[in-house]
Design a protein around this nucleic acid. Structure first.
Lengths: 140, 140
DNA sequence: CCCGCTCACTGGAATGATTCCAGATTAGCG
DNA sequence: CGCTAATCTGGAATCATTCCAGTGAGCGGG
């Protein structure tokens, strides 16, 4: 439904009840340009914007924003985690086996297709996620 | 289709064109008991069977067997990788957010449901995998 | 407009799964 | 029965991420 609103980072932070700090706004800005960035990508971008920033600060920020629901964390097996600002709609991802690049994929079938397990083994299932594996255009 | 055949480890190895070694048969046996074991679980079980075995040997074996198609590797975000002997049919998994326990789930909808992306972003998609997240009976 | 209380950021060390290396050993085909 | 590639050993190295302890800065109340 709600496509990521074009709100400025400050509004987003305040709206989520978080303090507005340089590191945080910089991180959000970084993820506006690069839609699926790794912690390291964000670190680089934040440093480019602000100068010296510790590794820890970026991890803290990413966690805080993820917990607040402003970011979604994606962890493809065998590749470092990536973060994206598109949240709320549960879309899926195509991951490049070679370089780890990620692309968004809206669910083919209308809504929650095979996302209800036939047999839940007694688990209390909360969410389902689909990952497509392949090669990105550049790696082919 | 082919549910894991009740073939003895030796047959499986030979059938895959691999040399039959103690470590390998022990690893396969370990995965007969524990269906979704971590590398560390396998290491423990193999040592219990054979005595001294190096960490490396187990990782080598797991890789060799995975490459040969005798094992399938599962890497749940935030948890160490696990291995299973059920291969060939592409079933999915429920993962416990808390302890990382894994259960098998056959695809709800008959066959390859939403497993064809609507827009592949130019990627050459090869496989799709579904992961259900929740809490296992014990962790509830 | 100032004050203090948290929460955020710094820098450096630690963790944990997995991999790399180089050399010794061994299975099993021919 | 010998050879050669496949295995195994033990230890060090990698990489993303986290833990820790101390310093510093938002921001709501006074």
């Amino acid at each position: 439904m709600t496509s990521t609103a074009p709100l400025p980072p400050e509004e987003l932070l305040r709206g989520a009840g978080l303090r507005v700090t340089a590191t945080r706004t910089a991180a959000l800005r970084a993820l506006e340009e690069t839609r699926h960035a790794t912690a390291d990508d964000v670190l680089g971008s934040v440093r480019a914007q602000l100068g010296t920033v510790s590794v820890q600060a970026v991890y803290d920020v990413l966690h805080a924003l993820t917990d607040a629901g402003l970011l979604r964390r994606i962890e493809p097996a065998g590749h470092p985690a990536r973060y994206e600002r598109r949240t709320g709609d549960n879309h899926h991802h195509v991951v490049c086996r070679s370089c780890g690049a990620i692309g968004d994929v809206d669910c083919a079938v209308g809504h929650a297709p095979c996302l209800t397990p036939s047999d839940d083994n007694g688990f209390a299932v909360e969410t389902a996620e689909v990952t497509y594996w392949g090669l990105c255009p550049r790696c082919r």
